[in-house]
Write a protein that binds this DNA or RNA. Structure first.
Length: 311
DNA sequence: CACTTGACCTGTCCGC
DNA sequence: TGCGGACAGGTCAAGT
């Protein structure tokens, strides 16, 4: 469920909370090796003692860039969370809009302990933790994931653009040069599938998942089950600006918390309160008053107004 | 190549 | 109250 607005919200939070901090220890759940597949040796050499230089995003992928020349590439998939807990908050209470209790919990896959330190990196390879002398621990970054679909993986930074997913992924919908003409062109390869399946295809465009596909198609009055070849260009011309404004509003609201999405501080997003169709089955359509239905399109639960979204 | 379906997981909800 | 099964959906692999 973390889609573009959720992942971007996490990125912004992490940018503020963890950049310029040094990773002094790494723990991970050995029972879930796919969550963090790197070897202890690589972790000791390229993660421990490295400083976080930037946090970037491409599509739904987060890139935690280290000054060691390596990047922690992270995909939250459906139930992943990246939550920073500052040292001052250990043992403190939790805010009302928080979804996470004391961490780590049983969903925790990876824990990065962070500190502010200027010590030179001279770390024996066999060490898994860096002695930091009197430098205070600044907090911990927890990668939690109930369903274990998500992962965090270390790549050389220069190789990140060559990862299969990165090479194939489509344009960012919020970029200024993403226009209806661009989407129309990208859709040519998926003429015989439904418009919803095409929007979910990350090689067509980046960052759209089930929530924002349904919301965008409602806004543009396009039925999700319409075949791409039957979607008129005028409808694509409506879709692109609607999608952009929905994604911008979702960013403003800190994303959508449907199940367990939280931002880098463990707090929920509130876009779902503004959603027009998502999770609103059996409620009246805010545009035409007909009852919103939940159907199945592209193998996904799909929310649609059967009256004002035309096929 | 285009397209669809199943697998990966665990927590929650529904019906019995 | 317990329990089996359906369901949730991002992406990749395998199938048609």
């Amino acid at each position: 469920m973390p889609e573009l607005p959720e992942v971007e919200t996490v990125r912004r939070g992490l940018s503020r909370l963890i950049v310029a901090k040094t990773i002094v220890a790494v723990e991970h759940d050995h029972a879930a090796p796919k969550s963090f597949p790197n070897t202890p040796d690589d972790v000791a050499r390229f993660v421990i003692g490295a400083k976080i230089s930037a946090v970037r995003r491409r599509a739904k992928v987060l890139l935690i860039e280290l000054d060691s020349g390596y990047t922690l590439v992270t995909h939250l998939k459906m139930t992943g969370q990246l939550v920073f807990v500052g040292a001052q908050r250990f043992g403190a209470g939790h805010p009302n809009d928080s979804l996470v209790g004391d961490l780590p919990d049983r969903s925790t896959r990876v824990t990065l302990t962070l500190a502010t330190t200027t010590e030179p990196k001279n770390i024996p390879h066999h060490k898994t933790a860096l002695a930091i002398g009197s430098d205070p621990e600044q907090g911990r970054l927890f990668f939690n994931d109930q369903r274990k679909f998500g992962w965090m993986k270390l790549y050389p930074t220069v190789e990140v653009p060559h990862i299969d997913f990165m090479r194939r992924v489509g344009p960012e919908p919020l970029d200024d040069d993403f226009t209806a003409a661009v989407l129309h062109e990208r859709l040519q390869r998926r003429k015989n599938t439904t418009i919803k399946a095409a929007l979910l295809d990350q090689t067509v465009l980046a960052g759209i998942g089930n929530i924002y596909a349904d919301e965008s198609l409602w806004a543009a009055r396009i039925h999700p089950a319409t075949l791409v070849r039957d979607v008129p260009q005028s409808a694509i011309a409506r879709l692109v600006p609607e999608m952009k404004s929905i994604l911008r509003l979702a960013l403003e609201k800190g994303g959508s918390t449907d199940r367990n999405y939280v931002n880098a501080e463990g707090r929920k997003g509130s876009y779902i309160d503004f959603a027009r169709v998502f999770r609103r089955e059996n409620q009246p359509c805010s545009r035409c008053g007909a009852t919103i239905e939940k159907i199945r399109v592209a193998g996904r639960g799909t929310h649609v107004c059967g009256r004002c979204q035309v096929q």
